[in-house]
């Protein structure tokens, strides 16, 4: 009986642990500092999480499909630099589609290597992390990129604008999250992504074009990265070459925190959004408590390991690993 109850609690923790942790944090921070739950604070957190969040949406597809994407940070720098550079050369109306095209071409290249050529995604995207960084530096000549006429462009609307009082980045993040939730949960493509990541061989034996599905997950990821780059460029109207550096791992942290298994086949957009928000709110909460930004690194470390540990422990039915 107690064993059963323990099992139950374990299951609930594993399935809803991330939501429970989220709630505990929110309540804790709210008690510690009233300002934490002020509307403008919450809106501020979501707004500043939007860039990371949009990238995490794309990576969720890649991870559910059973692969990694370590190149998104470097790719985001690329799209930011490219769109800023083209803004002054072509004007924003052409710069944006051009940048999306170029970024998604990079995604397609990765998708080709991982999907059709069946190369290890960890190494391919590691190589692309480096290569795209080089590409960005070559494009910019290593210099920071700035828009000449910062006041006179409508380009800033994506990062800084508001519609009906809601910041545009939040609208874009929310809109994409809803759109991709529908794609993943309701369309045949979404089902195929789960199947390919859950058991690629069985998917092939069921007539699912595994290579094409994997390819598409990378194109989606690149689309999200391009959107994030647009938000970033539009917010700051200028950028360093390394603006996205290190974000690939934060993105992955958010996706893992959301409970997607790195083995593929599981995870949802909703949970990834929760993962992103947890990272954002922890950062914000700790700052409000007067702690420096880096304390969140340590806290995030603890949370990631705890979250995954609980998940693993619930699956094997015991807390500690049986490894001798």
């Amino acid at each position: 009986m107690t064993g059963m109850t323990k099992q139950r609690i374990g299951n609930i923790l594993a399935k809803q642990g991330i939501l429970i942790a989220f709630a505990v944090f929110m309540i804790g921070f709210a008690i510690a500092n009233q300002r934490f739950i002020a509307i403008d604070n919450i809106s501020g957190v979501i707004r500043s999480s939007a860039i990371l969040g949009v990238m995490a949406l794309g990576v969720t597809f890649v991870v559910i499909g059973g692969n990694f994407d370590l190149s998104v940070g470097s790719m985001m720098s690329f799209s930011t630099i490219v769109v800023l550079d083209l803004h002054d050369k072509l004007g924003p109306a052409l710069a944006i589609p051009a940048m999306f095209g170029l970024t998604m071409a990079l995604g397609a290249f990765i998708g080709f290597l991982v999907g059709y050529m069946k190369l290890n995604s960890l190494i391919v995207t590691l190589g692309m992390l480096s290569a795209i960084h080089g590409l960005t530096l070559t494009w910019s000549g290593g210099k920071n990129m700035d828009i000449a006429d910062k006041a006179g462009t409508w380009f800033s609307v994506f990062g800084q604008g508001r519609i009906l009082g809601v910041p545009v980045p939040i609208l874009i993040f929310a809109g994409l999250a809803i759109f991709f939730t529908v794609v993943l949960m309701k369309t045949p493509f979404g089902r195929k992504v789960y199947a390919v990541g859950g058991n690629g061989q069985a998917a092939t034996f069921s007539g699912i074009p595994r290579a094409r599905i994997v390819f598409l997950t990378y194109v989606i990821s690149a689309f999200c990265v391009a959107t994030a780059g647009l938000l970033q460029a539009s917010r700051s109207l200028g950028s360093q070459n390394t603006v996205g550096q290190g974000m690939e791992l934060q993105v992955l942290a958010a996706v893992i925190l959301g409970g997607a298994s790195l083995m593929g086949g599981s995870g949802t957009i909703f949970k990834t959004v929760i993962g992103v928000l947890i990272l954002g709110f922890i950062q914000n909460g700790l700052l409000l408590m007067g702690l420096a930004f880096y304390v969140q690194y340590v806290v995030t470390w603890g949370i990631i390991i705890l979250a995954v540990w609980l998940d693993v422990a619930a699956k094997r039915g015991r807390l500690w690993s049986p490894t001798a």
Binding site: K192, A195, N199, A202, F205, G265
Partner: peptide
């Protein structure tokens, strides 16, 4: 390894080729 996606539910497995 080849017949089923073990982590998927029964219905989704059954309709996989024609989804």
């Amino acid at each position: 390894n080849q017949g089923l996606v073990l982590g998927m539910n029964c219905r989704d497995n059954m309709t996989l080729p024609q989804v």
